[in-house]
Design a protein around this nucleic acid. Structure first.
Lengths: 109, 109
DNA sequence: GCTTTGTGCAACTCGTGGGTTGCAATTCGC
DNA sequence: GCGAATTGCAACCCACGAGTTGCACAAAGC
């Protein structure tokens, strides 16, 4: 099993506009922090911090190529999070439909 | 169509441990802010703020019952978010498998 | 070897978000 | 109608996160 990790850290990583922009760009192609800094209106150091956060929750991985460090977006952990969220959501919804059905069975008869 | 809302605000709402505790409790039963304050180690006012945030992104709805205000967790918007995240994730993963296949086709032959 | 290009690390500012307390307003029980 | 319970609103504290600048370090290019 995959240790059912806490959704909070990954959600926190996904709760920032700049990091989504980064992820979007890394979903298209591998890029370095410097590349990203040219494409986005923030400093390279800010980008680096974001990349570290993204990597800490597994949404990104890096590969050293000479003096450059290339990053890429990883879909698997995001899919895993999506699965967990959907499971939770269905649990809540199941309860609501149960309540609704109960209410109807009381008024119908 | 359902206007493909921005995932950032909802992820931000989900990026807090206390809000998850609240959601968990509201997934079990309808409860008021006061009820939640008794079950969690934070003040009622803090709970109220969290509930407002959760409601602002559609994860929760409220219903006035006399002097009490009861809240409940809504699964549908969370499922919708999960769907969006999974779609994005699959996009990234598709690109990675394409690259891997390409690399193999270059080394195999 | 020396310059250039790219990365890593540290200190600092600033805004916002989670939390608190205090008090006014509303509604139920009797 | 009055007291008790709940909710609503406002001001305030504090920590953390996003961003910056500055400088040291490493690896190519010529």
């Amino acid at each position: 099993m995959t240790t059912a990790l806490d959704p909070v850290p990954m959600c926190a990583a996904l709760a920032d506009e700049t990091r989504w922009r980064i992820l979007e760009l890394l979903g298209e192609a591998d890029r370095s922090a410097s590349d990203l800094a040219e494409l986005l209106p923030v400093s390279r150091q800010a980008i680096t911090k974001h990349l570290q956060q993204l990597e800490a929750v597994g949404l990104v991985e890096h590969e050293r190529v000479g003096r450059a460090v290339r990053y890429r977006a990883l879909g698997a952990p995001l899919s895993q999070l999506a699965g967990r969220l959907d499971t939770i959501a269905r649990g809540w919804e199941r309860r609501l439909t149960r309540l609704k059905d109960l209410a109807e069975s009381l008024t119908d008869e």
